[in-house]
Design a protein around this nucleic acid. Sequence first.
DNA 1: CGCCATGTTAGAGG
DNA 2: TCCTCTAACATGGC
Length: 272
Amino acid sequence: MPELPEVETIVRAIRPALVGRRITGFEASWPRQVQPSVDAVRAALLGRRVQAVSRRGKYVVLELGGGAGLLVHLKMSGRLCVAEGHGQERPQHQRAVLRLSGGAPLRFYDARKFGRLRFAPELAAALSGLGPEPLDPALGPARFHAMLSARRRQLKPLLLDQSFLAGLGNIYTDEALFRARLHPRRSSAGLDARQARALLAAIRAVLLQAIACAGTSLDWIYPGGRMQARLRVYGREGEPCPRCRAPLRAQAVGQRTAHFCPRCQPAPRSRA
DNA sequence: CGCCATGTTAGAGG
DNA sequence: TCCTCTAACATGGC
């Protein structure tokens, strides 16, 4: 479910209630979601202090000092909140609880049980497989163009590949490709410098707008966002393109559904 | 009942 | 080596 803007929004929401607290307990009710194991994670966490809460790609990172940390990936339906009770959440969907000194516990809910909690002795090593952060100023247009040119993949699946670029999911890849006027099936190696620059700018613009909107809320899984009203193509097949009025289309690309304007985003001549 | 879903990954095959 | 696709994870909503 959550992509970079939603995870960023969650991190900002829970950070103030976590930083500085000491961990006094950890329980999980669906053990396969916890790595390396519930007991090992509990042993590693007890007594440690949360020094910082950050985000890397779609991971929530609880930094615990000494380079160690707890990584939380929400996958399709995971949610995090700090509260004494369940509030609006369904109690039967709570999968883990992190108890903290002097404050409410951090609760992890996940209807589909795809989410993961992982203790990492070395955060840097655990996160080393991720590509660069799209909003990192160190990622310039020239480097991005070089990254694209080094691969020969369809743009849509490449942008979804977290080892290529960290944080984009199905919604924001479609939105970025539309804004850059690039067809989702175009080959990454075929872009010129100007197109690569436009794509990077489009990715950043849509992510920043989404963060400002607290993310996208399309169903019960992620409430509170306002970006859904500003999506231009995702979930809008059949509606007129906001730019040229041609009917928007939805088509499978790399096993995911891509939404795009067939006129503003002309298809590549052959395949890929 | 069947199909879809904001995510990731292991494995097969080209 | 690189790319693409399938299955799997597990559940809820339509």
